[in-house]
Design a protein around this nucleic acid. Structure first.
Lengths: 124, 124
DNA sequence: GTACTCAGTATCCAATAGATACCGTCGATG
DNA sequence: CATCGACGGTATCTATTGGATACTGAGTAC
């Protein structure tokens, strides 16, 4: 992998975007919506462990960026659908590359951590 | 982009890894080290805005995961080199995919945000 | 009028990030 | 001999964010 000389400068230029993606829940939400729109409660179930407050916050931020759309249906009980935009669907490919890397190396990383922690324990 | 039926479950399995990558500074550090090892102070300069505390924390976490190595030279003044491992270098490709996406869409995202915020202002 | 669904808020507390100041080693300098 | 400076960090404190839990409001079904 070769980077042109100004690669890092350009990385900085897009830091504002990376900050958004580099969020604990963003990737999970985008992947959850890969197969089509979901309602708020469906996202909540699919993404185990997220609280409604944080889900709302993250969804609003993604809507703001144009990664997904939020559609309110005038019904009772209320219904709100979240769906990836083209921009969001474009994001699936790079996210998938990260996911593949993570899956391929997850086991190795876990053992690395264990070894590191053991070594640290020895020093005490 | 097609996902197999259990794609999301597997994404969850690697969440522990994603949590590490999905950190504000990790991506920047890995990219900074793409061209070869750097010293602590060099990283500090290259990654504008990072405080020494957070840089130390993030570097230690990445060392723990085996993404980079930390080499202390017995010199005065001290010298410590940080260098990507093979695992870390493998990570460059997927990170690059994200970076490319970010660069391609950064301008669009910024205008999306402006439009969203304007619309929100209208409502007040 | 009571209960229920759904999509969120409100409130409060804990964990994390960030700013700033400081430390220890030791060789070079005066 | 005192002191200055380089380097790679810690220590301490505060601000921001994340998380747990409880609650709300509209309306329809009972």
């Amino acid at each position: 992998m070769d980077y042109p000389p100004d690669a890092f400068a350009r990385a900085c230029a897009s830091r504002v975007v990376l900050d958004r993606i580099g969020d604990r829940w963003t990737v999970l939400i985008v992947v959850a919506l890969a197969d089509g729109p979901l309602r708020f409660s469906q996202l909540r179930e699919k993404i185990e462990g997220i609280t409604p407050k944080v889900l709302t916050q993250t969804l609003r931020a993604l809507e703001r960026d144009g990664v997904l759309t939020r559609t309110v249906f005038a019904q009772v009980p209320p219904r709100v659908d979240y769906e990836l935009t083209e921009l969001g669907r474009d994001l699936l490919a790079p996210i998938d590359a990260i996911r593949v890397w993570a899956e391929q190396h997850a086991a190795r990383i876990v053992t690395n951590r264990e070894r590191y922690d053991e070594a640290a324990d020895q020093l005490l």
